[in-house]
Amino acid sequence: MMKKVLLQLWMMFAITQVTAQEILADTTFINDAAASARKVLIKSKSRQSHLFNGVAYIEPNTTSVNQFPQYQSNEWTSGWVHYDGERFEGVGVLYDIFTDDVVVEMPSTGASVKLIKEKVSAFHIYDITFKNLSAPAPTPGFYGLVYAGPTPVYVRFEKNKQEHIESGSLSIDYEIKTRYYLVKNGAFHIIKTKGDIFNVLSDKKADLKQFMRQEKLKFKKNKQLSIVKLATFYDTIQH
């Protein structure tokens, strides 16, 4: 009888030990998971604070829904920003052409933050990547890369602000200027006419003229398409 009681007590002790170990293991797992989650959250917040460390962006005054200083639209669009050596995806982005500034939206508050320009190496919106260029670019700032071949093509947007009184009220207009640059051997060449292209790529001038006729390119009607196609063709016949 005594042996039976001792056996039962031993079994109860063993079951208790196993249960305690399982609880301890579960608790350790939960604590580890929570710690990992906290690390991810802290890292995420750290990345966000790293990106959103510019200054507040004050929306410029406008007098018309069709007049604004930003590129394409004054509404947020999703894009990516390469900022201070790190790339941030799925960010709400605005590009203020008038001031040549990149603005991002804080997801937690919706506030607008103007990034430190020197820390923005590139950003991407509306299917175009803008790069922050200095010399030998004509003017330091953001240039859209529309062709990334050996003879790249960049576009530079600028908006001039004009204010005038109309019917006793202040009217604000933003006039956009678009300049295209063809880069050959590291030098930037502004392209205003098709003749500029032939002068820059003079070693293949006859081939380019023939290609332009075959493709029926209308330079004045679609300058960007014409420049990109000619630059692409030039690169393909270089070897």
Rank of each mutant, 00 (worst) to 15 (best):
F68Q: 08
F68N: 10
F68H: 15
P69Q: 06
P69W: 05
P69D: 07
P69V: 03
Q70D: 09
Q70T: 14
Q70E: 14
Q70W: 09
Y71W: 12
Y71A: 11
Y71F: 15
Y71K: 07
Q72I: 10
Q72W: 07
Q72M: 09
S73V: 01
S73G: 00
N74M: 07
N74T: 03
E75I: 00
W76F: 10
W76K: 03
W76C: 07
S78V: 11
S78L: 12
S78E: 09
S78W: 04
W80C: 01
W80N: 10
W80T: 01
W80P: 00
V81P: 01
V81N: 02
V81M: 02
V81S: 03
V81H: 04
V81D: 06
H82T: 05
H82E: 10
H82V: 04
H82A: 10
H82M: 05
H82I: 01
Y83H: 03
D84Y: 09
D84A: 10
D84S: 14
G85C: 04
G85S: 02
G85W: 04
E86G: 02
E86Q: 13
R87N: 10
R87V: 12
R87W: 02
R87Y: 06
F88A: 04
F88Y: 15
F88T: 02
F88K: 07
E89K: 09
E89G: 08
E89N: 13
E89M: 10
G90D: 03
G90F: 08
G90C: 02
V91Y: 01
V91H: 02
V91E: 08
V91A: 04
G92V: 02
G92Y: 07
G92A: 07
G92K: 01
V93C: 02
V93Y: 03
L94Q: 07
L94V: 05
L94S: 07
Y95L: 04
Y95H: 14
Y95I: 04
Y95S: 11
D96K: 14
D96H: 11
D96A: 13
D96V: 11
I97L: 15
I97R: 15
I97K: 15
I97C: 12
F98E: 15
F98G: 05
F98N: 15
T99I: 04
T99F: 11
T99L: 14
D100Q: 14
D100L: 13
D100N: 14
D101N: 12
D101C: 12
D101E: 11
D101T: 11
V102T: 06
V102D: 06
V102H: 05
V102M: 04
V102C: 11
V103A: 13
V104E: 06
V104L: 09
V104G: 04
E105D: 06
M106D: 15
M106S: 11
M106R: 12
M106N: 15
P107R: 00
P107D: 05
P107Y: 05
P107E: 06
S108T: 08
S108G: 01
T109M: 08
T109I: 07
T109V: 04
G110K: 09
G110R: 12
G110H: 09
A111L: 08
A111G: 13
A111P: 03
S112Q: 14
S112I: 00
S112A: 15
V113S: 13
V113L: 00
V113H: 05
K114E: 14
K114I: 03
K114S: 14
